[in-house]
């Protein structure tokens, strides 16, 4: 179970500041939810955490090691990234996609070892897609593709996973199952989410971004208040507890006029 520690991250494009002094910590196999309206900087922050973009200021550490001191290959042996809406340009099979997760462990000319095959098998059945492993990736539904990406990430045997809106194309059951799975993995996760109820239920900790800054951070119970959701998302909500399990429940009432650029929430 790895530890991610980001301090004071800033990033701008052509003088336009997209992220400003972001602090984020994730550890001990906990699931950290990254919340905020469209364009608040969630995907950009995930890219900085993954080392895919270099921040203007600030540092990202994995178990006290600065990201800059880790080679891409060494990093990929502990950190997996599940991107949003990826497409393949060639006709790969489901299993071949999951095999890609072994890339950071394989020599250039090595065949897959028995251990590699076991890890791939385990990852395929973990996300419930083992029966379609020989199918072409292109024949899958959006939700199945998403699960294959997660299986590919699991095949990296990661200590940390970064996920950008992984529940996007999933039906309700798989949304719940995916987040339950993340919680049970003993892998530290940072996951960008749109659905506040899912975040409230499955994240141990949430970080709310607004206009590239951290608006609030902490356990969902203390962060996800009606006031916060009104000022960040521009939506009137009712926050209460659902009666059986007592978890936080957010009911959307109406879009307010106080915020014009984000009137639709909860994709």
């Amino acid at each position: 179970m790895g530890r991610i520690n980001a301090t004071d991250l800033s990033w701008s494009v052509k003088g336009h500041r997209l992220l400003d002094n972001i602090d984020l910590a994730a550890r001990d196999g906990k699931v950290v939810g990254l919340l905020g309206p469209n364009g608040s900087g969630k995907s950009t922050l995930l890219r900085l955490l993954a080392g895919l973009r270099r921040p203007d200021t600030g540092t990202v550490e994995y178990d006290e090691t600065n990201l800059r001191d880790l080679s891409r290959r060494i990093l990929a042996r502990r950190l997996a990234v599940v991107e949003q809406d990826v497409t393949a340009h060639n006709h790969v099979s489901v299993r071949q996609v999951v095999e890609l997760g072994r890339t950071p462990f394989r020599g250039r000319f090595d065949a897959l070892t028995e251990h590699d095959q076991q890890v791939i098998d385990a990852a395929l059945s973990r996300v419930g897609i083992a029966d379609k492993q020989h199918q072409s990736w292109h024949t899958l539904s959006g939700g199945e593709k998403q699960r294959v990406q997660l299986a590919r990430a699991l095949a990296q045997e990661p200590r940390e996973i970064l996920l950008d809106e992984p529940t996007n194309h999933l039906d309700i059951r798989y949304q719940l199952e995916l987040l339950e799975l993340l919680g049970s993995l003993r892998v530290t996760c940072v996951v960008a989410l749109h659905d506040l109820n899912l975040a409230a239920r499955y994240c141990h900790h949430v970080v709310v971004l607004d206009h590239g800054q951290v608006f609030a951070a902490g356990p969902p119970e203390t962060v996800l208040t009606a006031e916060l959701i009104r000022s960040v998302y521009g939506v009137e909500v009712l926050v209460d507890r659902e009666p059986t399990a007592g978890t936080l429940r957010i009911t959307y009432l109406a879009a307010t006029t106080s915020r014009t650029d984000a009137t639709v929430v909860a994709g």
């Binding site: 890219r47 993954a50 080392g51 895919l52 080679s71 891409r72 290959r73 060494i74 990093l75 990929a76 042996r77 950190l79 997996a80 990234v81 991107e83 990826v86 497409t87 393949a88 340009h89 060639n90 790969v92 996609v97 890609l100 997760g101 890339t103 950071p104 394989r106 250039r108 000319f109 990296q156």
Partner: peptide, 19 residues
């Protein structure tokens, strides 16, 4: 093997450890 990692794009290849 690096080219295989390009299947889902450049960022995805980088996240799989490819320079």
């Amino acid at each position: 093997s690096s080219l295989d990692a390009f299947t889902f794009g450049w960022d995805s290849a980088a996240a799989l450890g490819v320079n």
